[in-house]
Design a protein around this nucleic acid. Structure first.
Lengths: 120, 120
DNA sequence: CCGGATCCCAAAAGATACTG
DNA sequence: CAGTATCTTTTGGGATCCGG
């Protein structure tokens, strides 16, 4: 018979492509880092640049725009004497922190095994 | 005084770049999907291709190699009559599932708000 | 049937310089 | 200070072909 192709997941999972779309939330170089750096509170543009040394202004700017657009980050403009802008995680953004944390944990274990950064 | 630059995170966080390295574990198109599809048990190459329709053979092959190399996935070769190869998550790989799950949850919420897939 | 090797193209990241 | 504009470079995915 041809029905022993394995238990192939029953009704047609909506998941596979969903995941890809969801991953897009944190897509782009440094995006997870930006979220991570905002975890302890609001932060200004140049502060983030300092937090994440190798990031370029353009990329930081782009990522912040995207994340803001996606509702993960909120932007506050205070036009005080020197106009300053603050970025802050939204409620939704905070929900990503456990996810990033979980990934970091696995990353640490892999690193301990020397399997990260040595490959490919 | 000049020490009101904000609480800028004390001693030099090892995190920022760590996160980037850790994200590399699940880097590459469809990598999260592959992990996701393996969550319910071992799966063969062509089964995975069917699970994730838009993936190309090359990319699937590449991702599987990388994930195997990183200790997230295990490869079993059974040289039976028609040689078949099975892929399976390792213990470490399973630890990524909660992380992916958390991301999916946020993704769903964003999608409900229509902020995913409409932007940029 | 499984998957590696090669070529090509698009997207994205980095650097630099410039503006409100 | 907080970005944007332009350019160049690199990466990586897709298609196809080829080998075991």
């Amino acid at each position: 018979m041809s029905l022993k192709v394995r238990i192939n997941r029953s009704p047609a999972p909506p998941e596979p492509c969903m995941l890809t779309e969801c991953m897009a939330v944190i897509a782009g170089a440094w995006a997870p880092n930006v979220i991570w750096c905002l975890r302890m509170g609001p932060r200004r543009f140049n502060e983030l640049r300092i937090d994440i040394p190798p990031i370029s202004a353009k990329v930081l700017s782009t990522r912040l725009s995207e994340l803001t657009e996606r509702g993960v980050v909120q932007r506050h403009v205070r036009d005080t004497s020197p106009p300053s802008v603050e970025y802050e995680l939204t409620e939704l953004g905070r929900e990503l922190l456990p996810a990033l944390d979980a990934i970091v944990k696995v990353g640490h274990k892999l690193k301990a095994r020397g399997q990260l950064g040595v490959n490919n």
